[in-house]
């Protein structure tokens, strides 16, 4: 018997898979970028269904607010809109689709036959907010990766600014 949770799951699954099909197969790169928005929203919905509230908000802030806008800027700055070059071509579709289908079949088969170690959870645990637990874990168990990640973010920010602002190098012979 399907309940509301299952219907919401299937709705988000259709959103994710449909929009990622548009991302992968659309000929127009701007359409792909906008379909990616719906994929990210669907993944955030999955996080809510999996009772990961903090992660759902992070997904919306970082992916939709940051990475997607960055990708759109990349599309705008690197395609001459006046040209017809906005269509992006594909290559080697047949071997690539074989490889992708092989990977999908293999993964689904492995997932289907595997006997996962599952621990039943209590409803109180699922209804709690995860932000407190994530904060404690960040400053206890995961303190070293947390500090390294902050340094990596700083290095990536400075590096991106320096690389993108570099003047045009002399022509390659």
């Amino acid at each position: 018997m399907l309940n509301l949770y299952d219907y919401i799951f299937y709705f988000f699954a259709i959103v994710i898979l449909g929009s990622s099909f548009v991302v992968v197969f659309s000929r127009n790169i701007v359409h792909s970028a906008f379909a990616l928005l719906f994929t990210f929203f669907g993944v955030a919905g999955f996080y809510v269904l999996l009772s990961a509230d903090f992660l759902a908000i992070t997904q919306l802030l970082v992916y939709v607010g940051g990475i997607l806008v960055l990708l759109l800027f990349g599309v705008m700055l690197t395609n001459n809109i006046v040209n017809v070059e906005i269509k992006s071509g594909t290559m080697q579709t047949l071997p690539a689709s074989l490889i992708a289908a092989l990977i999908a079949g293999l993964l689904c088969g492995i997932f289907y036959v595997s006997n996962w170690y599952l621990v039943p959870t209590t409803p109180e645990l699922l209804n709690n907010t995860t932000a407190v637990a994530i904060g404690y874990a960040f400053i206890t168990t995961w303190i070293l990766p947390f500090e390294v990640a902050s340094v990596v973010l700083l290095v990536a920010m400075i590096g991106a600014v320096i690389i993108a602002r570099r003047e045009k190098a002399p022509e390659v012979e």
């Binding site: 994710i16 898979l17 990622s20 099909f21 991302v23 992968v24 790169i29 994929t39 992006s88 071509g89 594909t90 290559m91 080697q92 579709t93 071997p95 690539a96 689709s97 490889i99 992708a100 289908a101 990977i103 999908a104 993964l107 689904c108 997932f111």
Partner: peptide, 16 residues
Amino acid sequence: AILFSLGIYAVLTRRN
């Protein structure tokens, strides 16, 4: 898994 293989397909085939 299906999302992963779609991503692999995009990485392998797109020229942009």
